Simulated scan of single mutants.
Amino acid sequence: MRKLIPAGLLALAAVPVFAGSARLAEFAGGAPILPDSERITSAPVPVILHIVSVTVFSVLGAFQFVPGLRRRRWHRLAGRILVPAGLLAALSGLWLTLFLPRTELDSSPLVAIRVAVALWMVASLLLGLSAARRRAFGRHRAWMIRGYAIAMGAGTQAFTQGAWLAVAGPLTTWGKTGTLLAGWLINLAVAEWLIRRPRT
């Protein structure tokens, strides 16, 4: 079971990695692939920072769940990359939420949820880092898992939005809010299960 977790996380990370790669291709002059290209490309610097930091955090973070690597120096070295990347991902996401023009489906509650999610991720990473420095490794593990779960929201949201499209048709304002919130809540629920499950 423990060996399947990193593989599953890498598969989930493929969703934001693919979408981010498509956006970067657009910035490089390629044809628009994803919707909402004109709005997204209006803020190239924060968007590129967000894509790169999320990619690093989601892919490299999956390997932190490999049991053998956690007992080696690699875990600590990777952590020194992951914490700055995660903070940059959260803060750039917060900037995009607050300053990028909204779409027609972006409700005020969704904006508030995105702000709360970004701040929760920042708090989780800082608390995890603080716990590691105090050698409270149980708390360090718990807070880093919570921060990683938030970052992986885009992967789960592809499935929650896909389910909405299959059952109810095109997204509505409340449909978008609900499916995005559901993705984050599912990830946090799984994170808490991982944190609390018996360890051998």
Rank of each mutant, 00 (worst) to 15 (best):
I48W: 06
I48K: 14
L49C: 02
S53A: 06
S53H: 02
S53L: 08
S53Y: 01
V54D: 10
V56W: 03
V56T: 04
S58T: 09
V59F: 06
L60F: 12
L60K: 11
L60N: 09
F63Y: 10
F65Y: 13
V66R: 13
V66A: 09
L69T: 12
R71W: 01
R71H: 09
R72W: 11
W74G: 06
H75C: 08
H75E: 08
R76I: 03
R76E: 03
L77V: 05
L77A: 13
L77N: 14
L77C: 11
A78R: 14
L82D: 03
A85P: 12
A85H: 15
L87F: 05
L88H: 07
L88Q: 01
A89Y: 00
A89V: 04
A89E: 02
A90F: 00
A90H: 00
S92G: 03
S92V: 09
G93E: 02
L96I: 10
L98I: 06
F99H: 14
L100A: 13
L100I: 05
P101A: 11
R102W: 13
E104Y: 07
E104C: 10
L105D: 04
S108H: 11
P109A: 03
P109K: 09
P109G: 02
L110W: 10
V111R: 15
V111I: 11
V111C: 12
A112I: 11
R114E: 12
V117N: 06
V117L: 10
A123R: 11
L125Y: 12
L126W: 13
L127A: 09
G128M: 02
G128Y: 13
L129K: 15
A131W: 14
A131C: 07
A131I: 05
A132F: 08
R133Y: 14
R135K: 15
R135N: 15
A136G: 06
A136M: 09
F137I: 13
G138F: 03
H140Q: 01
H140M: 02
R141M: 05
R141V: 02
R141C: 03
A142I: 07
W143I: 00
W143A: 00
M144K: 02
M144F: 10
I145T: 12
I145H: 03
R146N: 00
G147M: 01
Y148L: 00
A149G: 08
A149P: 09
A149V: 02
I150K: 06
A151T: 13
M152L: 14
G153Y: 09
A154F: 11
